[in-house]
Protein backbone atom coordinates (compact mmCIF):
# COMPACT_ATOMS: atom_id res chain seq x y z
CA UNK A 1 0.00 0.00 0.00
CA UNK A 2 2.68 2.44 1.06
CA UNK A 3 4.90 1.87 -1.95
CA UNK A 4 2.05 2.11 -4.47
CA UNK A 5 0.85 5.36 -2.96
CA UNK A 6 4.35 6.71 -3.21
CA UNK A 7 4.74 5.74 -6.87
CA UNK A 8 1.31 7.18 -7.58
CA UNK A 9 2.40 10.49 -6.08
CA UNK A 10 5.59 10.41 -8.13
CA UNK A 11 3.64 9.91 -11.35
CA UNK A 12 1.33 12.71 -10.29
CA UNK A 13 4.27 15.01 -9.73
CA UNK A 14 5.88 14.26 -13.07
CA UNK A 15 2.56 14.78 -14.84
CA UNK A 16 2.05 18.13 -13.16
CA UNK A 17 5.56 19.18 -14.15
CA UNK A 18 4.82 18.09 -17.71
CA UNK A 19 1.66 20.19 -17.83
CA UNK A 20 3.64 23.31 -17.05
CA UNK A 21 5.90 22.68 -20.04
CA UNK A 22 3.15 22.35 -22.66
CA UNK A 23 1.87 25.93 -22.87
CA UNK A 24 5.34 27.41 -23.17
CA UNK A 25 6.18 24.93 -25.93
CA UNK A 26 3.30 26.52 -27.85
CA UNK A 27 4.86 29.93 -27.48
CA UNK A 28 8.22 28.72 -28.74
CA UNK A 29 6.64 27.49 -31.96
CA UNK A 30 6.09 31.10 -33.09
CA UNK A 31 9.55 31.83 -34.28
CA UNK A 32 8.99 33.20 -37.77
CA UNK A 33 9.97 36.75 -38.75
CA UNK A 34 7.27 39.32 -39.43
CA UNK A 35 6.25 39.47 -43.07
CA UNK A 36 8.57 41.46 -45.30
CA UNK A 37 10.49 42.94 -42.39
CA UNK A 38 12.92 45.56 -43.70
CA UNK A 39 14.54 48.81 -42.66
CA UNK A 40 12.52 51.96 -43.28
CA UNK A 41 13.24 53.63 -46.65
CA UNK A 42 15.25 56.57 -45.33
CA UNK A 43 17.16 54.68 -42.60
CA UNK A 44 20.82 55.53 -42.07
CA UNK A 45 22.76 52.31 -42.42
CA UNK A 46 26.36 51.85 -41.29
CA UNK A 47 28.86 49.12 -40.55
CA UNK A 48 30.72 50.68 -37.61
CA UNK A 49 29.01 53.69 -36.09
CA UNK A 50 31.33 55.99 -34.18
CA UNK A 51 31.28 59.40 -32.56
CA UNK A 52 34.04 62.00 -32.61
CA UNK A 53 34.01 64.75 -30.00
CA UNK A 54 36.09 67.80 -30.89
CA UNK A 55 37.34 69.14 -27.57
CA UNK A 56 38.32 72.46 -29.19
CA UNK A 57 34.74 73.18 -30.24
CA UNK A 58 33.17 71.91 -27.05
CA UNK A 59 31.93 75.11 -25.47
CA UNK A 60 29.78 75.40 -22.41
CA UNK A 61 26.72 76.04 -24.57
CA UNK A 62 27.39 73.06 -26.82
CA UNK A 63 27.70 70.75 -23.84
CA UNK A 64 24.49 71.97 -22.24
CA UNK A 65 22.59 71.84 -25.54
CA UNK A 66 23.75 68.33 -26.34
CA UNK A 67 22.80 66.97 -22.92
CA UNK A 68 19.46 68.77 -23.02
CA UNK A 69 18.68 67.47 -26.51
CA UNK A 70 19.37 63.91 -25.43
CA UNK A 71 17.35 64.21 -22.23
CA UNK A 72 14.37 65.57 -24.15
CA UNK A 73 14.60 63.10 -27.00
CA UNK A 74 14.65 60.11 -24.68
CA UNK A 75 12.32 61.28 -21.93
CA UNK A 76 15.05 61.01 -19.36
CA UNK A 77 13.78 61.78 -15.86
CA UNK A 78 15.53 64.21 -13.58
CA UNK A 79 16.41 63.12 -10.04
CA UNK A 80 17.56 65.52 -7.36
CA UNK A 81 19.26 62.67 -5.53
CA UNK A 82 22.63 61.86 -7.10
CA UNK A 83 22.17 58.16 -6.20
CA UNK A 84 19.13 57.75 -8.46
CA UNK A 85 20.37 59.68 -11.50
CA UNK A 86 19.70 58.53 -15.05
CA UNK A 87 22.42 59.77 -17.40
CA UNK A 88 22.98 58.96 -21.07
CA UNK A 89 25.34 61.77 -21.95
CA UNK A 90 26.71 64.11 -19.33
CA UNK A 91 29.56 66.40 -18.30
CA UNK A 92 32.67 65.11 -16.54
CA UNK A 93 36.04 66.60 -15.69
CA UNK A 94 39.01 65.64 -17.84
CA UNK A 95 40.66 63.75 -14.97
CA UNK A 96 37.48 61.79 -14.31
CA UNK A 97 36.92 60.87 -17.92
CA UNK A 98 40.54 59.92 -18.51
CA UNK A 99 41.97 58.56 -15.25
CA UNK A 100 45.52 57.43 -15.87
CA UNK A 101 45.88 59.59 -18.96
CA UNK A 102 46.90 62.85 -17.35
CA UNK A 103 49.99 64.56 -16.07
CA UNK A 104 50.61 67.79 -14.21
CA UNK A 105 51.73 69.74 -17.27
CA UNK A 106 48.82 69.49 -19.70
CA UNK A 107 47.50 72.65 -21.41
CA UNK A 108 45.04 74.41 -19.12
CA UNK A 109 42.49 74.70 -21.93
CA UNK A 110 42.37 70.91 -22.13
CA UNK A 111 41.76 70.12 -18.48
CA UNK A 112 39.97 73.23 -17.24
CA UNK A 113 36.54 72.62 -18.73
CA UNK A 114 34.37 69.57 -18.43
CA UNK A 115 33.84 67.38 -21.47
CA UNK A 116 31.05 65.04 -22.51
CA UNK A 117 30.96 61.33 -21.75
CA UNK A 118 28.47 58.71 -22.91
CA UNK A 119 28.30 55.02 -23.72
CA UNK A 120 31.35 54.16 -25.83
CA UNK A 121 29.57 51.48 -27.86
CA UNK A 122 32.66 49.35 -27.43
CA UNK A 123 33.72 46.90 -30.06
CA UNK A 124 34.27 44.38 -27.23
CA UNK A 125 31.57 45.43 -24.78
CA UNK A 126 32.00 43.88 -21.30
CA UNK A 127 28.36 44.70 -20.50
CA UNK A 128 27.20 42.43 -23.33
CA UNK A 129 29.57 39.71 -22.16
CA UNK A 130 28.11 39.66 -18.64
CA UNK A 131 24.38 40.09 -19.37
CA UNK A 132 22.63 36.83 -18.46
CA UNK A 133 19.64 37.31 -20.77
CA UNK A 134 21.04 39.05 -23.86
CA UNK A 135 18.95 42.06 -22.85
CA UNK A 136 21.95 44.12 -23.77
CA UNK A 137 23.50 43.09 -27.05
CA UNK A 138 25.64 44.35 -29.88
CA UNK A 139 24.13 45.05 -33.28
CA UNK A 140 26.02 44.32 -36.49
CA UNK A 141 26.62 48.03 -36.94
CA UNK A 142 28.35 48.21 -33.56
CA UNK A 143 25.60 49.86 -31.53
CA UNK A 144 25.31 48.33 -28.07
CA UNK A 145 21.56 48.18 -27.48
CA UNK A 146 19.28 47.65 -24.51
CA UNK A 147 16.17 45.55 -24.81
CA UNK A 148 14.13 46.99 -21.94
CA UNK A 149 11.54 44.28 -22.46
CA UNK A 150 13.98 41.57 -21.52
CA UNK A 151 16.13 43.19 -18.83
CA UNK A 152 15.69 41.52 -15.44
CA UNK A 153 17.43 44.32 -13.60
CA UNK A 154 20.33 42.28 -12.18
CA UNK A 155 22.71 45.21 -12.83
CA UNK A 156 25.62 42.94 -13.74
CA UNK A 157 26.18 45.22 -16.76
CA UNK A 158 26.62 48.19 -14.42
CA UNK A 159 29.35 46.33 -12.58
CA UNK A 160 30.84 45.28 -15.91
CA UNK A 161 30.91 48.67 -17.66
CA UNK A 162 34.31 50.30 -17.08
CA UNK A 163 32.97 53.73 -18.02
CA UNK A 164 30.04 54.11 -15.64
CA UNK A 165 27.76 54.64 -18.62
CA UNK A 166 24.77 52.72 -17.34
CA UNK A 167 21.88 53.85 -15.17
CA UNK A 168 19.28 51.87 -13.30
CA UNK A 169 15.66 52.85 -12.78
CA UNK A 170 15.54 52.70 -9.02
CA UNK A 171 12.09 54.32 -9.13
CA UNK A 172 9.26 54.62 -11.62
CA UNK A 173 10.63 57.16 -14.11
CA UNK A 174 7.11 58.31 -14.99
CA UNK A 175 6.70 59.85 -11.58
CA UNK A 176 9.71 62.16 -11.93
CA UNK A 177 10.09 65.61 -13.43
CA UNK A 178 10.18 66.69 -16.20
CA UNK A 179 8.00 63.73 -17.22
CA UNK A 180 5.52 64.99 -14.66
CA UNK A 181 4.62 68.66 -15.11
CA UNK A 182 3.87 71.21 -12.41
CA UNK A 183 0.25 70.11 -12.29
CA UNK A 184 1.36 66.56 -11.51
CA UNK A 185 0.28 65.18 -14.88
CA UNK A 186 2.38 62.79 -16.87
CA UNK A 187 3.57 64.98 -19.72
CA UNK A 188 6.64 63.61 -21.50
CA UNK A 189 8.73 66.04 -23.57
CA UNK A 190 9.10 63.66 -26.52
CA UNK A 191 6.33 61.69 -28.21
CA UNK A 192 8.91 59.77 -30.28
CA UNK A 193 10.47 57.64 -27.62
CA UNK A 194 8.90 55.54 -24.86
CA UNK A 195 9.75 55.96 -21.20
CA UNK A 196 11.22 53.11 -19.24
CA UNK A 197 9.74 51.22 -16.33
CA UNK A 198 11.24 50.84 -12.89
CA UNK A 199 13.74 48.04 -12.42
CA UNK A 200 15.51 48.07 -15.79
CA UNK A 201 18.91 49.37 -16.83
CA UNK A 202 19.26 51.99 -19.54
CA UNK A 203 21.97 53.88 -21.37
CA UNK A 204 22.78 55.80 -24.57
CA UNK A 205 21.75 53.92 -27.71
CA UNK A 206 23.49 56.20 -30.25
CA UNK A 207 19.92 57.29 -31.07
CA UNK A 208 19.17 54.03 -32.87
CA UNK A 209 15.53 55.14 -33.13
CA UNK A 210 16.57 58.30 -34.98
CA UNK A 211 19.09 56.57 -37.28
CA UNK A 212 16.28 54.22 -38.29
CA UNK A 213 14.39 57.25 -39.57
CA UNK A 214 17.32 58.93 -41.28
CA UNK A 215 18.20 61.36 -38.50
CA UNK A 216 21.53 61.92 -36.75
CA UNK A 217 21.76 61.46 -32.98
CA UNK A 218 20.06 64.24 -31.03
CA UNK A 219 23.26 65.38 -29.29
CA UNK A 220 25.13 65.58 -32.59
CA UNK A 221 22.34 67.61 -34.14
CA UNK A 222 22.41 70.04 -31.23
CA UNK A 223 26.21 70.33 -31.04
CA UNK A 224 26.90 72.92 -33.71
CA UNK A 225 29.56 70.71 -35.30
CA UNK A 226 31.45 69.84 -32.12
CA UNK A 227 30.14 66.28 -32.21
CA UNK A 228 30.54 64.23 -35.36
CA UNK A 229 28.82 60.97 -36.07
CA UNK A 230 29.34 58.50 -38.87
CA UNK A 231 30.50 55.17 -40.19
CA UNK A 232 34.18 54.40 -39.54
CA UNK A 233 34.04 51.52 -41.99
CA UNK A 234 33.51 54.15 -44.68
CA UNK A 235 36.92 55.67 -45.42
CA UNK A 236 35.37 58.87 -46.75
CA UNK A 237 33.00 59.50 -43.87
CA UNK A 238 33.34 62.70 -41.90
CA UNK A 239 34.42 60.84 -38.75
CA UNK A 240 37.08 58.81 -40.56
CA UNK A 241 38.50 61.95 -42.14
CA UNK A 242 38.53 63.82 -38.84
CA UNK A 243 40.38 61.01 -37.10
CA UNK A 244 42.96 60.86 -39.89
CA UNK A 245 43.67 64.56 -39.68
CA UNK A 246 43.88 65.16 -35.91
CA UNK A 247 45.26 63.41 -32.85
CA UNK A 248 42.56 61.68 -30.80
CA UNK A 249 42.29 59.73 -27.57
CA UNK A 250 39.80 57.25 -26.17
CA UNK A 251 38.75 56.42 -22.62
CA UNK A 252 40.66 53.59 -20.90
CA UNK A 253 42.05 52.09 -24.12
CA UNK A 254 44.21 49.65 -22.12
CA UNK A 255 41.15 47.57 -21.18
CA UNK A 256 40.77 46.22 -24.69
CA UNK A 257 37.16 47.30 -25.02
CA UNK A 258 37.84 49.37 -28.18
CA UNK A 259 35.60 52.37 -27.46
CA UNK A 260 33.92 53.96 -30.46
CA UNK A 261 33.76 57.44 -29.01
CA UNK A 262 36.87 59.42 -29.91
CA UNK A 263 38.08 62.72 -28.45
CA UNK A 264 39.92 65.11 -30.77
CA UNK A 265 42.59 67.04 -28.87
Amino acid sequence: MDSTRRSFLKILGVTAAGLTVRPSADAWALGAKPRGAAPLDNALVGKRWAMVIDLQKLTDKVRKDAVEACNRAHNIPHYENHDDEIKWIWEEGYHNAFPGQHNHHLPVELTRDPLLVLCNHCENPPCVRVCPTKATFQREDGIVMMDYHRCIGCRFCMAGCPYGSRSFNFWDPRKQPPLVNEKGEFDPPSPDYPTRMRGVVEKCNFCAERLAKGKLPACVEASNGALLFGDLADHESEVAKALRSRYSIRRKPDLGTEPQVYYLI
Binding site: K33, P34, A37, P39, R139
Partner: peptide, 14 residues
Protein backbone atom coordinates in the same frame (compact mmCIF):
# COMPACT_ATOMS: atom_id res chain seq x y z
CA UNK B 1 7.24 39.80 -32.88
CA UNK B 2 7.27 43.43 -33.92
CA UNK B 3 9.03 44.54 -30.79
CA UNK B 4 11.74 41.89 -31.12
CA UNK B 5 12.22 42.73 -34.78
CA UNK B 6 12.46 46.46 -34.15
CA UNK B 7 14.62 46.33 -31.05
CA UNK B 8 16.82 43.36 -31.81
CA UNK B 9 16.93 43.06 -35.61
CA UNK B 10 16.70 46.81 -36.35
CA UNK B 11 14.02 46.28 -38.99
CA UNK B 12 11.08 48.63 -38.70
CA UNK B 13 9.06 48.24 -41.90
CA UNK B 14 6.32 45.62 -42.15
Amino acid sequence: KWRDTVVRDRLRSY
